[in-house]
Amino acid sequence: MKGALSLIVKIWKHPQGRVGLLIAGVLVFCAIFAPLIAPYDPYDVTARAEKGLSPSWQHPLGTTISTGQDIFSMLIYGARVSLMVGLITGILTALIGAVMGICAGYVGGLCDTLVMRVVDVMLVIPTLPLTIVLTNLFGKSYFMIIFIFVIFGWTGLARVIRAQVLVLKNSNYVKAAELSGAGRWHIMMRHILPGVSHLLIMNTALSSAGIMVAEAGLSFLGLGDPTAISWGKMLADAQSGGALLFGHWWWIVAPGIGIFLSVFSFMRIGLALEEIFNPRMKRAGAMHRLFRTLNNTYIQKVFAEMDEAEREEAREAAKEKGGAAV
């Protein structure tokens, strides 16, 4: 706990991290206290106003064309879904990815091969069509979306962690612990895990950001819970409700800015964490690329970047042995 608090203080001191923390704080506040902040209750059917109103003092962002709900209130409630999906998925991905990565890296052998084969299969199946198929078969809900994100998301992290574990495996203190007869589990928990913890925390922040964008996309396609209010779904409603036809740009811009702020804040926090953990930025060459190339196909990009990191490793190792390729 103390470690967590000191981490937050360090992020606050970092200029970009401060911005991220502020915005994230506002969003979390909105999500938790939505019923208090929002001027109208979007779920209350009797409190609807006239449909398709333009922004005014009573309705800062106007009302929807299809149902007459207040858009500003919906915006505030929408924070709940985005943050919840992003954080839960991020944390679960981190957990599973860590476990898989550490096992594969440390235990090696069959476990390693098995995990890597599973990763290969996962990477090939296209996620968006699979999500559409599974929500068709098993019903549309955020649980299903989180489930699919976690199932596909742990692969990238597992590879990264595995690479790091391979390095740690050969470090002195791990070898010493092995020699002194410590059990595998003990070593993994006490020695390896702290070594990759920085990677984990950073990845949670960054992947949460990526997940929020992906969730917006899935909600936009209508794959989330139809009764929940989420920013992606607001965009979908705007499109099908005729915002484009009527020219109600505020209905489109508002949820977009919501998505932008949530992703931006987490990315800033991730960037701050990265610089805190790696002040020398030597190994962060690869991390930098990881961060910069986050976009909707981030899983594949992570894979590519981590391979690049391995190659760099191999190159350095080869250089040490005395052969330099040009």
Binding site: S66, S240, G242, L244, L245, F246
Partner: peptide, 27 residues
């Protein structure tokens, strides 16, 4: 449906073989 209504408004089609929501009458 929105695309079809837009097409009707712009004159790309003469009639829409579908009912529209009542609040589109404003358009």
């Amino acid at each position: 449906i929105n695309v079809a209504i837009y097409a009707l408004k712009k004159g790309h089609i003469d009639v829409l073989d579908s009912s529209i929501a009542a609040n589109y009458a404003r358009l």
